[in-house]
Design a protein around this nucleic acid. Structure first.
Length: 284
DNA sequence: ATAAACGCCTGACGGC
DNA sequence: TGCCGTCAGGCGTTTA
C-alpha cells in the first residue's frame, strides 16, 4: 500500500503510539532476525546483527517512501515497495508466533518487537552510518515548505517526458506512487501522456498544487486501504479516478478509462483530461 | 534523453 | 472445485 501518505501514517503510528499504534522510541534492540535474506540490502546479515545489537531507537522519520529509524550510531532504513508493512507486537513472551510473510524482526528489551512484513518480498532494509548513502539521488520532497511551484515548473521544463512516468520517477519528485499520481493528474485536468515540456506555467502550478492537495488529504485520512493490504486509512473512499474504470466521472459524467502508461495502470477521465496544451475542463 | 521490456514475488479475483 | 490469465500501492537493470 505504501506511497508517501501511507508511509507517513506508519511513521506517526510508530512514534505517537496513539490510535492502536505503539511507539518504538527509546526501545533498545537486543536481537535482530532476518527471515528472508534478500530483505537486507546492506550490510551482510552477520554485520547487521552485530552492529544493530544494543542500539536504541532515538527517533523515526520519513523521506519520500523510506522509513528511517535513527539509532545511537547508525540509521536503519526501510522501503516497503509494493506490499510491505511494519507493526509492533507487544509480547507476553518471546514464543508468540510470527505471521506469514514476516521477513525481519527486531526484538526489544521491553518485551516488544518490530516486525517487517512483506508478502511479495520486494521491500528492502539498510543499516548505514549515513542515510545519504541510500537517499542521495532522490528528488525533492513534495511537501517540503522550501519547495515551490516555480522550482517544480522549472524542473518540468527540463525534461521532455510523459507526465505520468515523470511524476513516478523518484529522482524527479520523491514520494508519489501510482494512485496519488493518477489523482493529482485528474485534479489538475492534465492528460497522463502530456509532454512535460508543453505545460504552461499555470498548468504546472496547478499540477504542483494538486500534488500537494492529494498528498495532504491522503495523510489526513491516514492513507488509503486497498485490497488485502489494509492499514485502516480511508482515502480510498475519495478516489476520483483510481480504480474507477467504467464509472462516471464526478465532474462531467464520462466513464473513467484505464490505459497503460509506462507499464503502469493509469486511470483518467477522457473528457476532463484532454491531451492538449490547455488545461482540461476543470479549468474555469 | 526517453521509454519500453523485464525481473523480482505472492496472492486475489474473475471467467470458464 | 480447479485451472488460468490478469492485475497489483515499486523500482532497478537492460535494451532499443
Amino acid at each position: 500500500m505504501p506511497e508517501l501518505p501511507e508511509v507517513e501514517t506508519i511513521k506517526r503510528a510508530l512514534t505517537a503510539g496513539g490510535r492502536g499504534g505503539r511507539s518504538v522510541l527509546g526501545c533498545k534492540i537486543v536481537q535482530a532476525d532476518v527471515l528472508w535474506h534478500r530483505t537486507l540490502q546492506t550490510p551482510d546479515i552477520q554485520t547487521f546483527q552485530q552492529n544493530i545489537h544494543g542500539q536504541v531507537i532515538q527517533s523515526v522519520s520519513r523521506r519520500a517512501k523510506y522509513l528511517l529509524f535513527h539509532l545511537d550510531r547508525d540509521t536503519l532504513l526501510m522501503h516497503l515497495r509494493m506490499s510491505g508493512d511494519v507493526r509492533v507486537d507487544a509480547l507476553q513472551n518471546r514464543l508468540e508466533p510470527l505471521q506469514t510473510h514476516d521477513r525481519l524482526v527486531l526484538w526489544f528489551a521491553n518485551q516488544s518487537r518490530l516486525v517487517f512484513n512483506n508478502p511479495r518480498k520486494f521491500g528492502r532494509v539498510w543499516l548505514v552510518k549515513d542515510p545519504q548513502e541510500v537517499l542521495s539521488r532522490l528528488g525533492p520532497e513534495p511537501l517540503d515548505p522550501t519547495f515551490n511551484a516555480d522550482q517544480f515548473y522549472a524542473n518540468l521544463k527540463r525534461h521532455k517526458r510523459q507526465l505520468k512516468p515523470l511524476l513516478l520517477d523518484q529522482h524527479f519528485l520523491a514520494g508519489l506512487g501510482n494512485i496519488y499520481t493518477d489523482e493529482a493528474l485528474f485534479l489538475s485536468g492534465l492528460h497522463p501522456r502530456q509532454n512535460s515540456q508543453s505545460l504552461t506555467y499555470l498548468q504546472g502550478k496547478k499540477l504542483f498544487e494538486a500534488i500537494r492537495t492529494v498528498l495532504e488529504t491522503g495523510i489526513q485520512r491516514n492513507g488509503a486501504s486497498i485490497d488485502w493490504v489494509y492499514r485502516g486509512g480511508t482515502f480510498q473512499n475519495e478516489f476520483k479516478v483510481y480504480g474507477r474504470r467504467g464509472q462516471a466521472c464526478y465532474h462531467c459524467g464520462s466513464p473513467i478509462e484505464r490505459m497503460v502508461v509506462g507499464q503502469r495502470g493509469t486511470h483518467f477521465c477522457p473528457k476532463c483530461q484532454k491531451p492538449t496544451d490547455r488545461a482540461g475542463c476543470l479549468e474555469d
